[in-house]
Every structure is written in C-alpha cells, then in structure tokens.
Design a protein around this nucleic acid. Structure first.
Lengths: 367, 367
DNA sequence: CCCCGCGTTGGCAGCGCTATCATACGCAGG
DNA sequence: CCTGCGTATGATAGCGCTGCCAACGCGGGG
C-alpha cells in the first residue's frame, strides 16, 4: 500500500505525499464534497468558493487521483484506441489527432493493437474495457468490422465510434468519406485523360474501403461503357510489397494497360517502382494514381495523383463525437439517429497521371 | 456511482454487474485475500487452492478492477509512452513494439505526445504520472533529454527508460545504438567508393543522435585526411521538407559534391528527389546515403544505402528493462550500474551510392 | 511437554474519491 | 407565522482491492 501515513506523523516537514482532495478542502476551508464539485466543474458552487478552492488546489499542486475517481464514480476519464494495422502511418496519424482532442477534455488515451485475425481479439478487448473501465473507444479499420470486438464492446456497454467502418452503419456512430464516389471520381479523371485500358489493384478485402473503392471504379467504368477486364484486376493488400507483385503481373499483360489505379498510395508507389524497373516512363507510358494522399505520395517521383483523405479531421470528428457522448449532458445513449459524419475528400492532381501519349512535365515534385 | 447494489437484491437472475473478487472468493470457498494472492501470482498458496480459484475466476469471467488495484496497492499496471515527433513512423514503430511486450506482462499502455518546445510539457507530464500513477515510462528522442520532463519524472519517482538519449547516460537506463560509430562507418563506405567532396545534412540538433552522427562523419573524414568544408554542411531537421531545402543548396555549390550523406532517410529521399528534379542521375552523378532504414529507404528509387537501426529490438529491450524493474523482485531501485543496452546496427548497401564515375545498376529496387 | 518457526490462510482497515442523502439558508406565498 | 421550494454545502457510506497483522496447523528442537 502506498506509504500509509501513520496516525501522527512525527516529521512536520516535507510530507513526500501527493496532496489529496482532503488537503485542498482543509486549506480552502470547505468540505471535500465541495472540492469535488469544483474539480468536476459541477454547478451550484458560489463563484467565490470556487475560486478559493481553485487557488488552494493550485497552491498545493493537487492532482486528482484517477483511480479513486474511477473506483468511486462511473467515469474513468480513459478512452481507448484500437487499431489493427501495425504498419503504415495511418494508425499513427489517427492516434496523434485523437490525442490532440483528448488533451483539453481531461481524458487520457490507452492504446491497443489488435490483430484482426488473431484468436484472442475478444479476450484482449474484454480485458481492456473491463479491467480499466474505459469510458469509450475509437476503432479504425479493419477491426471496425470485427464481429467479436463489437460484440464485446456492446456487451460491456462501452460507447464507441468507428472510423471508416463497413456498411453496418447504424450499429455505432461513424466517421468516413464517400470512398465509392471518390474512387469513381478518380477513375473518371483517368478516363478523362484518354485512358481506356485501365488496371486496378484492389485493397485488403477486410477493409470496407477496399470494397467501396473497387465498386466506385466499376461504376465509373460502366458509366463510360468501358469493359473491366478481369485480368486487369489484381488483388493487393494495401502493402507496398503486395503492390510490387500486382504491378509486375499487370504490366506483363498484353496489351498492357496504359493506366493503373491502386487502392492506396503505398501500392501506387510500388507500381511506379516496378515501372522504373521495367524502363517504363511514368506518366508518358503509364499513368498511375493512388488513394489516401499518404506522405509517400509526395515522395515518389513523379508525385502521385491521388485522393486526399482528411485523416486528422476524421480522427478529430470521431473523438469529438465520443467526448460529446461522454459529457454529463451527453446522456446515457447515442442520440437518434446514430451520428455519422461524412467528410469531404479532395482529388489531388499531381504528375503521375497524364493524357494518353502526353508529355512529361519536369519540375518541382511537390504540390 | 456504479449501480450500487442494494443490501438485498430482489432479482436473483442476471446480476448485470461485473463479478468481483468477492464473488470469486465465495465460489471458490476461500477468502478474498487468497483470491488476491492467486490473481497476483504471489507465492504461498497451495496448488490445489490456486487451481480452484483460477477455475472459479474463469467460470465467472472475472476481470480484476485496475482502479481498485491501483488505489489500494502500489502498482497501477499502467506504463506510459511519451513521444515527441508527431510525424514519421519512428514513434509508431516503437509504440507497436512496446505494446507487444506489455501484452504478456499484464500491463496496459498510455500514450502522450509532447511537443518538446511547448511551455506546458512539465505540467502535462506531471498530470500524466500523478493522476494515473503510472508505474513506469518509456521516452523517445527528443524528449529523452528534456530537462523539465526528466525533473518531473524524477520528482514523482517514476522509473523510466530512454531510447537513444543524450550523453547524460547514467541518469536512467537507456537503449541505443552507437550512432557515432555507425555514421563513421557509413562515411567510410562512401569514402571507400572514391568520393572526396562529400556533403552532409545535419539532423535536428535537439536529438542526441543528430549530434552523434555529425561527429561520426567528422571523425571519418579527418581519419582520411579529408577536409570538411563548412559550405558542404547543411542544417536539416530530419523532415523530408528540410531535406529538399538542404539538397537544393548543396547541389548548387560549385564544385558540386559527388556524394551526400543525410542524417536520416527522409532527408536522403529528398536529396534524391531534388537530384531527379535537376536531372542529375543517382548514383552515377551523385551518391546519396541515409540513416535509419526507414520504410522510405526501399521505396525511393534507387533504393537507399543506409544504416539499419533495429527499432523494434530497441523498443522491446527498453520495455523489458522497465518491466524487470517493476516486477516484485525488481527491487525499489535500478540495479547499479544503470542498465544500458547498446544494440547492433547494420550497414545496408543498396543502389543509391556507387563508385565515383561508376555505372548504374538497373534491376530490382528491393533488397 | 511446550515453544518456536514456517507455510498457509483469513480479517480488516483504508487507498481517494463520488453518490446519495441530509442540512442550512434565503425568499416567495399563504 | 409557517410552509414550500430552489440553491449551496456538508456528512457519510462505500467503490474493489491490497498491505499489514493475526491465526492456524504442523513439525522439530529444547
């Protein structure tokens, strides 16, 4: 037990003990309960008292003990972030944005990486939410759609918000972009450049976004009466390595596609690398576009034409939704209908896609 | 308060309440204290009893309440991860590795991003460790050397391990590689290819590694009686953007350097981009090398010759050190002398550096 | 025979806080 | 004058668990 202070402490000097709410109460000349009210920003405290308590707390350097709060009350001031993909920078960018939002709200962030395919996802999730009594959870794909995880969260009655989940959309609040329309628009951009023979690299089918992007591609193609040759469709997994494999296969088809649409930027970058390797010039001989506007999009050469997904905004929106729900006035349930934020994407036209038979633009790679 | 159960509950059916240690104790026919011993893997419990308790706990789906544990005891089973750099994938890779190690040990991970330059680093750190009673903390550069943060951690008596800290090395355990020797070796590799006029892009001087890498470069140069022209030294900040600026300046010097050593891969990739932009062929007309073996190293073309830093191993080693210290037998203090793990780096020779006047190797970009 | 030590188990206070209820007070209306 | 009500504050009982200490049974030395 943490340095149990004896009934009468002989040393009147440095207590070497964190000040408690009791100490603040004594210094301010009020009861503990009033201090609690001030700390929790509850109403019904006179301003004069509130200030006195605040000053006492500051003077003592008082820090509320979250364990005690959580044990006595019904809030832990902890939110969890569950992500699936250990690689890539997506998960990290989301995390940083969540942190930015938690900061001001007095919440702390607990993270856990869950392998979607692992056998113990349910147990691990249960451990997290039951042991720590998380107030809420934010999920990113692909575990947004892991039935086990969602079941555990529902049973534990922990509110959660999903970023880019699958279609089962009214199970929880969600934040997303319109992946299908974005893919459609991107495809139309490529078609508009004159390309007809267009290859497509699919993403990991466990991600809803991968399926939606494929569907958007198909729609744009059929809207323009273009055939989607099955041999120009390759199954990737969102990783750079998978992009290399798919690109090699696609670029050996005859006739060769004049443009390749990849379901994310990592795979698009891999296509460019393979093109280099084969001595194919991008974009003169091959146009390549990606998706996400990940950092890699501006690093490869030529810079990738892609769809920018506003990841920080999405993560912030998700956090804000969750925090609003957790606030005392947030009520004990999600508002109806289930909140859903759909944010705008943006087509970023750079140098990796050009008109069929077009010229090479040399110059600054940035945009 | 969480559903305070009335003295006599009328409904004997679903409790809708998490089972407590008391419930387990009753089912197993022992005292709460014994359950506590089993849960905490303490000695002095008969095997038969231990198994009986374990079965009861499993049957009820018992999950220990971490808040209560932390409040009553002296351990919170929470460790904190403080990172500085919000961009890049370094922080994320470290985090994932820490998580992998925490998993088995029954610890959960709390993260916080601290801006090294912000005015409130001390407060934020204090809030984290005092409010949540973290058992330990892991730090990455550059906040490994933030005096405020370290002071707060020391005062709160929270054990911490630093990854790649500055020279003040016996203040805490640390994990690192020999950045200076690695830079020296890398520089010697470049010199060995015949280069004499070598540019160097420095990293953010707040990072110890940046300073050490520069020193290693200087050593190698002077060991080979080569002058380090100050105009071939540029100050970067580890970011891709800063790399672009530095590269532009370096490549307009006359006579132009025949090789550029960047303090990390992001900046090295930027050098390659600028070279492309200027129509300079890499590596025939310009050799470029980086540091870290970040994912970008294999994505740019030509793939970067660089020094691989074993980030996952470093993070795991740091976590293991911390967990060993926190274990009941870990004692109340760090062993003496202060533990320090220095891990091996590895020179990864790829295609971005070639003999002066050498030929271009075409072929697979990967390695 | 008793007493001590050791391995094993239980009793209980209390960690720091919040929920609930009680109290005190001022002020309007009967 | 009392009653009723709304606002401001206090008293108290735990939340679930662990640290400390006591208790118990057993075997061996005095």
């Amino acid at each position: 037990m943490r340095k149990r202070n004896p009934p009468a402490r002989p040393q009147p000097s440095l207590p070497a003990r964190q000040p408690t709410m009791m100490d603040v109460a004594q210094l301010a000349g009020v009861s503990m309960k009033t201090v609690s009210r001030v700390v929790n920003k509850e109403p019904n405290v006179r301003n004069e008292v509130r200030e006195r308590v605040t000053r006492a707390a500051t003077a003592l350097g008082y820090q509320p003990n979250f364990s005690a709060r959580s044990l006595a009350g019904e809030r832990s001031f902890l939110i969890g972030y569950l992500f699936g993909d250990p690689g890539g920078d997506y998960a990290h960018r989301v995390e940083v944005s969540i942190l930015n939002r938690c900061r001001g709200a007095g919440y702390h962030l607990l993270v856990e990486q869950l392998d979607d395919a692992a056998a113990d996802v349910a147990e691990r999730t249960a451990a997290l939410v039951s042991q720590l009594r998380l107030d809420g959870v934010i999920l990113t794909a692909p575990i947004t759609d892991n039935a086990e995880v969602l079941r555990v969260l529902d049973e534990a009655r922990v509110p959660y918000v999903r970023i880019a989940p699958d279609a089962e959309s009214d199970r929880s609040p969600a934040v997303c972009i319109d992946d299908m329309r974005a893919a459609q628009e991107l495809t139309e951009h490529v078609i508009g450049l004159g390309h007809r023979r267009i290859g497509f690299i699919k993403g990991d089918p466990k991600h809803a976004a991968a399926r939606l992007r494929l569907r958007g591609f198909r729609r744009a193609m059929s809207a323009h009466k273009l055939e989607v040759a099955e041999q120009l469709l390759e199954q990737g997994s969102f990783s750079y390595a998978s992009g290399l494999d798919c690109a090699r296969r696609l670029l050996h088809r005859r006739p060769r596609p004049t443009a390749i649409i990849a379901s994310n930027d990592d795979m698009a970058a891999a296509v460019i690398a393979v093109a280099h390797e084969m001595g194919l010039h991008v974009p003169e001989e091959l146009s390549v576009v990606g998706f996400d506007d990940a950092p890699i999009a501006q690093v490869v050469w030529p810079a990738l034409t892609t769809v920018r997904q506003p990841i920080p905004l999405m993560a912030e929106a998700a956090t804000d939704m969750l925090l609003a729900r957790l606030a005392p006035r947030g009520g004990g349930a999600w508002p109806s209908p289930m909140p859903r934020r759909e944010l705008d994407y943006e087509l970023k036209v750079r140098q990796s896609a050009a008109p069929l038979g077009g010229y090479r633009r040399r110059g600054a790679a940035g945009n």
